[in-house]
């Protein structure tokens, strides 16, 4: 039998590579439609003007609710989406933020809107310290540790007399007329959400973000490429806690009470995960789209069926179906098939 080495295939390979490169280049060339998020923001800022024409408190509440979740899901996305560490305990930082600013409000009467960044900072420091311990493990172990974290904080807050234990604390209401009572929190939440989305965009495109994405792909390789993975992961944890904590601060005053079974609820964490999965983990628009979808779906469930059991069942089902059929999420799936509308390409 003759020995014949195939040399002719080389030119075909080069041709295929060139075609592939061109395709990649086209994809990157897609200009972002920055006007869309900016217009959206402008509309949301103008929305309270509706109050001059009637009582749109419910609409404002829904937008505020969605904005708060968009901010928290985007924050979760830094750790879960970029670095690939799924946390089911992020409601802890929601609680820390809420309780920190809420206590200041209760003691000294300073609005949480003022102290929210500080609350975020406290949550970030806690996140940093917790991350030092729990980020030693990855995969399922990390997920379990995050649930344990939530359980521990729940017991601690339930038994902490200073913050009212399981009964919680009532916070003072502001003295604005009913029509305008929600508006300060509305603007605060929109500002936090917009800031968070902008920040995640900046993080994703920074050297830090690149490092996180490398960690998510292959941590050992990332480490050998000279990335200080431990520092990167812990920083990602702290940053994501920061945004969740800030949201929690404003949420407490808006709700006018602090209670462990509102803040330290696994369903809150579950929602963050769900929103990111449904929208698209690791994308910028994904958590926002996911938050809007879930809040809308939630309202639908509550409005039509009313019971919280249905809500939990629905959340679980949507999550399972999303995972099975669209593991990349809405944005991720559309982007992969090249059908992502330019208005939603925020990456």
């Amino acid at each position: 039998m003759a020995v014949s080495l195939q040399q002719s295939s080389a030119s075909a390979v080069i041709e295929a590579r060139r075609a592939h490169n061109e395709k990649l280049a086209r994809r990157a060339d897609q200009t972002r439609a920055t006007w869309f998020p900016l217009t959206l923001l402008a509309i949301l800022i103008a929305l309270p003007l509706l109050q001059f024409t009637g009582n749109y408190n419910y609409l404002l509440h829904l937008v505020l609710f969605a904005a708060s979740y968009a901010a928290m899901a985007s924050g979760w996305n830094i750790l879960g989406g970029f670095a690939g560490y799924i946390s089911l305990g992020h409601s802890v930082f929601f609680g820390i933020g809420g309780y920190f600013s809420g206590m200041i409000l209760a003691r000294y009467g300073v609005s949480t809107i003022v102290t929210a960044p500080l609350a975020g900072l406290v949550a970030a420091v806690m996140g940093y310290l917790i991350g030092l311990i729990t980020l030693k493990v990855r995969g399922p172990s990390f997920i379990i540790s995050s649930i344990a974290l939530l359980m521990i904080s729940r017991i601690l807050f339930d038994n902490w007399e200073l913050v009212g234990g399981a009964n919680g604390l009532t916070l003072p209401m502001n003295d604005l007329p009913v029509l305008w009572a929600k508006v300060p929190y509305y603007y605060a939440m929109i500002a936090i959400a917009a800031f968070t989305v902008w920040a995640t965009y900046r993080i994703k495109h920074s050297k830090f973000g690149l490092g996180l994405r490398a960690i998510s792909k292959d941590e050992i390789k990332a480490e050998s490429a000279g990335i200080n993975t431990r520092f990167y992961k812990v920083m990602a944890f702290a940053l994501s806690a920061f945004f969740v904590g800030m949201t929690g601060a404003v949420w407490g005053e808006y709700l006018t009470y602090l209670r462990p079974n509102i803040f330290l609820l696994i369903l809150v964490s579950a929602n963050l995960v769900l929103m990111c999965i449904l929208g698209g983990k690791g994308t910028i628009a994904g958590p926002v789209v996911g938050a809007i979808l879930i809040v809308a779906l939630n309202e639908l469930f509550v409005a039509t069926m009313g019971a919280s059991e249905i809500n939990i069942l629905g959340t679980g089902m949507v999550m399972a179906l999303g995972l099975i059929f669209f593991p990349l999420g809405l944005i991720g799936t559309l982007a992969k098939t090249g059908k992502l509308p330019r208005v939603l390409n925020w990456d």
Binding site: M1, V3, S4, L5, Q6, S9
Partner: peptide, 12 residues
């Protein structure tokens, strides 16, 4: 047997 690029180049 010599195998390369998924093909058998030589057997003997």
């Amino acid at each position: 047997v010599v195998l390369d690029l998924g093909r058998t180049l030589f057997e003997g």
